[in-house]
Amino acid sequence: MSTIPSELSYTKEHEWVAGLDDGLTVTVGITEFAAEALGDVVYVQVPDVGGTVTAGDAVGEVESTKSVSDIYSPVSGEVVETNQSVVDDPSLVNSDPYGEGWLFRVRIDGDPSDLLTAEEYGALTAGE
């Protein structure tokens, strides 16, 4: 059973969002559920710093031994930072998906919508 931290928000595409409470800048990663489903992650492509992203758009990809998945931005705004450590060592997505395995930070533009609570995300993944 994978961990779903209660303080984070989630998407149906298995991204997590941290820092919404503090206001402007949020951190994005993929959930432990997604990391476990992928298997050993071997390659992560994150969006360019300075670029703008729109909620729901594919902005990167995460690749494992057996499969490849798009990363969808959970929010709209400007990418202000990306995690070079996870690009250099993609296994961080598996070993610490909610910590060292974070992917990118976005200065959000407007109020994010359609995000799930931990409880809602847990209900979504329970059936899978």
């Binding site: 298997g39 050993d40 071997v42 031994t65 057996k66 598996n94």
Partner: peptide, 8 residues
């Protein structure tokens, strides 16, 4: 079995 733990 696809994998038991880490396939790598």
């Amino acid at each position: 079995p696809l994998r038991y733990g880490s396939e790598s």
